[in-house]
Nucleic acid binder design. Sequence first.
DNA 1: GAGTGGTCTAGACCACCAA
DNA 2: TGGTGGTCTAGACCACTCA
Lengths: 245, 245
Amino acid sequence: MVDKSFGSPSYRPLYDQIKVLLTQSLIGGEWRPGDMIPSEIELAQRYKVSQGTVRKAIDSLATENILIRRQGKGTFVATHNQDDVRLRFLRLTAESGQKELLQNEFLSCVKSKANVHTGKVLEIKAGATTIEVKRLLTFSGRPLIYDYIVVPAAPFKGLNRAKVEESNGSMYSMYESQFGIRMIRAEERIKAVAASAEVASSLGLKEGYPLLSVERVSFTYGDRPMEWRLGFCLTDDHHYMSELE
Amino acid sequence: MVDKSFGSPSYRPLYDQIKVLLTQSLIGGEWRPGDMIPSEIELAQRYKVSQGTVRKAIDSLATENILIRRQGKGTFVATHNQDDVRLRFLRLTAESGQKELLQNEFLSCVKSKANVHTGKVLEIKAGATTIEVKRLLTFSGRPLIYDYIVVPAAPFKGLNRAKVEESNGSMYSMYESQFGIRMIRAEERIKAVAASAEVASSLGLKEGYPLLSVERVSFTYGDRPMEWRLGFCLTDDHHYMSELE
DNA sequence: GAGTGGTCTAGACCACCAA
DNA sequence: TGGTGGTCTAGACCACTCA
């Protein structure tokens, strides 16, 4: 039950405690991606607080893109399985601004062991089993991104070529429907590099050609890292979009 | 005065109207960067609404980094003139994570005319007078960024070499104190490019070396574009950090 | 202690959606 | 028409800061 005591040494606002309880229900799978959660009034009764306090907790989760409010309908668990947000984390857009047909070209999928770096960022032991996927993303038929993806094997048991190909571009949508794992945010580290021989041949370029190197770590509920990837992007006719606030 | 009428064709929430009024006071200079604005209670009386409504308007401006709330003290107009936010828009960090000494090396400052592109993004006529600044940013003594900056001449009348050198890295801090212009957000378009002869020589590289090209448009109150810049960054030991939410 | 922002409540009413 | 989220109010009380 919630703790309304003030002045206690570990004072936390009520709405913050409600937020934790809601998050726990999300982690525990009581409400799954796409589901509608109970109404504010119901939740207020369940947690024995006012509707306004539940509201504030939900507001916070909504600005984090974890829940989605729809006036007149209800509040829903966010998902990558909708056309409008399927590629929420893809920041690469055409210089012309035109929409493009995105396709997935499978390269490989093998079991491996975490090295020091991937072990560290995924918070697993170096040497723990991982699954490594390589793929090409084509924009309107032209290969523009070479992706190298590493995930811990345990929560993604059964990930294989077929599932990657079915994903049709959005791994995150596939993670949700196949493994019940939802990514809520990611961090990217970007550099300019010269294309290696392997990447250059996959993208049809000369070795040494300037590419955008994008290293990404993705996090699920509770800020637990669940995927590491390294992408090499050809940015001759495209750019990476970033908003500074 | 505010308009509480519901059901009107152009319905806007009260707090949204208050937000506009607050923004107008910021644009008009009633409260300048660093100033404390009136208390919530005072503002509620001034606008004849409840404190909670003023609160919601201020909350919104605070999440946009336009105002800053300090419990027990008051609400202040955000500024770039503080050590902790002087480089708020600088996303380049060392691979090692170490803090670095940032310095400004002046290259040039000339009057010019807006071309089609800068005219368009700055929303001024192509051919209108602009001021163009070139500078080098050095990290711990090593030149890493070549910046080419264009601003409209009118609002920045008097911008010259001395002012750029005084800025010591943060143009935004200088814009505020010298011209009363505060930037609240920016958009960046990032690509990987091969270094041109001019940029390569400034950064001490071979022509063709891979560099991060960062094109930025910065906006002041009311989302008016006020600066365009193109930066070329050496990312051998640094990366551009981006958060996806 | 006085003044500021922050939390929490209870209740009234509006806007939107679906059946 | 009923249910959902969205707005607005009024008031009580807590937490933080500074003189």
